[in-house]
Design a protein around this nucleic acid. Structure first.
Lengths: 179, 179
DNA sequence: AGGAGATAGTCAAAGCTTTGATCAAAGGAG
DNA sequence: CTCCTTTGATCAAAGCTTTGACTATCTCCT
């Protein structure tokens, strides 16, 4: 993938993928280098993307990445039971509970008891929360566009399709998940 | 993307992507739905993948996901300065420092002073660390293969190419990063 | 109706993350 | 050679994460 395979001293976060694939296959034999490269690249790209979005968009506006995710879910689908927020945002129920403590103190989210089930807690955005996520998501999407514009429209469509296929495939179906 | 667009009550982690894209564009107007779908899908897929690998492969063998990443880097490119481990594994130096405390207690990693620079700390695997990562990575790669086999060889190649392009593109170059 | 079992939310402990401060050591300029 | 700046590692505080335990509540079966 690179012109000149780098030695251990000139590696960086990106070129480490090539290095790792080469070195591992020569060392272990029974590995599938394409599967390795796929997962490594996917993980590194996503890390870089999330780091960029969090530090360039959300932190400057006072939100953490997890805080953004909860607000985003409540914005689009709220009010929701705490359980549903956990499902839709991909966190554990305990994580949502802890996070909502912070968001509640910040005046962005409200907790109230559900009517039909006294165990359940209904979460909703406050007006401040609604304003925050509306503006924040605006900036978020602009940054998303900057990333997405690296690819042509066809490439974007292809990529989304492949990611979707991977997400709905057999391995994903067997995968350990939170729910 | 789905046959029948789900209402807020029947959503799950995956179908939320469709719902979010539809709802946001109708609510905000100025968003790019494809960029949104791309980032949302990428993030959710990667989360699911990492969760699966961590809980099915690494935790049962006594490693955390971050611990695995550090061991993996040291296995292939070690011994390395602490700084380099941070770069190659994509963590902050402080995170590596804290994590190595744990790995050192577990007898998997050794710290020693570098010769040429008395500020620097050289990290290397112990023999137990080497054995651990060798076996652990074996299982890791088998699980990677299960995921990757959802796609045909051509699809895998295409996907890797597109991810790589995104990773090296203009937005990635401007992106806020740790280094 | 009564009791067993499942479910919602929270708490606690432990670990990992971040940023910013601190300290020691190295490098460069005068 | 000395001062100033930069750099490597660690620490501290705050936040988020996980699993597992616990309480309250609901549901279902007899």
């Amino acid at each position: 993938m690179t012109a000149h395979p780098a030695g251990p001293d000139e590696l960086d976060f990106l070129s480490f993928v090539d290095f790792a694939v080469t070195k591992t296959t020569s060392e272990l034999g029974a590995v599938d280098p394409e599967a390795m490269r796929l997962v490594l690249t996917l993980h590194r790209l996503t890390s870089a993307l999330v780091y960029d979005l969090e530090s360039a968009v959300h932190r400057p506006r006072g939100l953490s990445w997890p805080g953004f995710r909860v607000l985003f879910v409540l914005w689009l689908a709220g009010p929701l039971e705490s359980k549903r927020v956990a499902q839709l945002s991909g966190m554990s129920r305990a994580a949502v509970s802890a996070l909502v403590n912070t968001l509640e103190k910040a005046g962005l989210v409200e907790r109230r008891q559900a009517e039909h089930d006294r165990r359940a807690v209904l979460l909703s955005l406050t007006e401040a929360g609604h304003d925050t996520i509306t503006q924040d998501y605006q900036a978020h999407n602009e940054r998303e566009q900057a990333w997405a514009n690296t690819l042509s429209p066809d490439e974007r469509t292809t990529l989304i399709g492949l990611l979707h296929k991977l997400m709905t495939g057999a391995a994903a179906a067997d995968a350990k998940r939170r729910f």
